[in-house]
Design a protein around this nucleic acid. Structure first.
Lengths: 224, 224
DNA sequence: TTTGTTTCTTGATGCCGGTCAAGTTTTTAT
DNA sequence: ATAAAAACTTGACCGGCATCAAGAAACAAA
């Protein structure tokens, strides 16, 4: 599996899941591989949006900058996630910034190539529509949540959801407080305070290494 | 409204724009027409999401309810807009509420029919992807804006953008203050106050009938 | 280790904007 | 038209959370 290092990227990606091995080979042959160190930039706002990016390993954050310079984290890209679909069909520019949080591998496909692929394998468009749909639903919730709920409720919700999606009761925060803060639309200081408060009333326990242990998920979800 | 059942609905919709007249006829023959009075419900959260809705006239709001009961306006559907694409490809339920603001006409297409159409006319999927992309981009901006900018900045931005998109310098607010408030993530009272303040410093002029006249768009955009 | 740097925590302070309330204007209905 | 209801405005109050600042802890490099 060296020159044969084949579908490393593409087989990870849900949007290609219905395809056969030889079709994946075809795709793999047209992707470009990149590696990014922590802190390195994957893309900037205003960059021409001409490639679809596939994260084949690592972790990266996608964020926007508001007019006042404040940062808003929109997505946390994990292995198998894609980015750049948003305007693959228009000739727009990016509106967000992408930055590796850990050593990260990315495969990219040029727009024209991807469009050809979609014509050839219609299942891809359907899958892309699915990705869009999920992302829209997620963003709608995030918008509603940041606009209408208290920081405490948002944080409590984030903790219980993360634990639930990992099917665990204790987990390590996947982000620095600063990034978590921009994701939840607040500040690192407030996160610290709220976590301390949750611990004081027994809802969670904090352990060294950013480990959070959920003690009472039901109560956490009742916070408003 | 629909005296002669031509392609009244479907010809309005960007996603069908490449299709020929007889193809539009085919589509028109499978849509269902509905009419809603102001305040009537188009759909509720938890409704099965099995139809694509096309607004052929009027205006409707799409909003979510947060856990604490507060409302968040996500989209304002106008003639030609569609809704329900989000989960046309999964068997999910709705997460938002739809409500007519004025007398509103809607055509709907059942999911299976729409999927058949997409197979038959591939241009439709591409167009749907475009709609998704625009909506995602818009929501990303809205998320960033509500999470990071002041109410004053958001309102100022809304005013200048609305004026710009209408290519006018004075316009009638298309929403009641309450709805505008839930769109901007604030309250009717605060909107009133901020508008009064803008007027006091000469940035805008308010005229009877919810008419807003922009006097200094540049200054408005500098507010933070 | 030791040193420097980044991240995190905790305190003090202030303000934006939400809430409640009362009065006014506009819209709708009769 | 007048009456009733809904929408809007303005004031008073105050609480949540951002900001600024300083110290503690965690991490990285040499």
């Amino acid at each position: 599996m060296s020159a044969h290092a084949t579908h490393e990227c593409v087989q990870l990606v849900p949007i290609f899941q219905e395809l056969a091995a030889d079709q994946l080979d075809t795709i793999e042959s047209i992707v470009q591989h990149h590696h990014y160190l922590p802190g390195e930039t994957l893309f900037n706002a205003d960059d021409p949006l001409d490639t679809l990016m596939i994260v084949s390993g690592g972790q990266a954050k996608v964020y926007q900058l508001a007019a006042n310079g404040r940062e808003q984290l929109l997505y946390l890209l994990q292995t198998g996630d894609i980015d750049g679909e948003a305007a693959l069909f228009e000739n727009k520019r990016r509106t967000s910034y992408g930055e590796a949080l850990v050593p990260t591998d990315v495969c990219s496909i040029r727009r024209e190539d991807f469009q050809t692929l979609m014509q050839k394998y219609p299942s891809i468009s359907i899958n892309v529509l699915n990705v869009f749909g999920k992302r829209l639903t997620q963003l709608e919730r995030q918008t509603t949540s940041t606009a209408t709920e208290s920081v405490e409720a948002r944080l409590a919700n984030y903790l219980t959801e993360t634990a639930a999606s990992l099917k665990v009761t204790a987990f390590k925060l996947p982000l620095k407080k600063k990034d978590l803060a921009t994701f939840l639309g607040t500040t690192p200081e407030t996160i610290s305070r709220k976590l301390t408060r949750f611990e004081q009333v027994g809802l969670i326990t904090q352990k060294p290494g950013k480990i959070i242990q959920i003690n009472d998920a039901d109560q956490l979800l009742l916070i408003e």
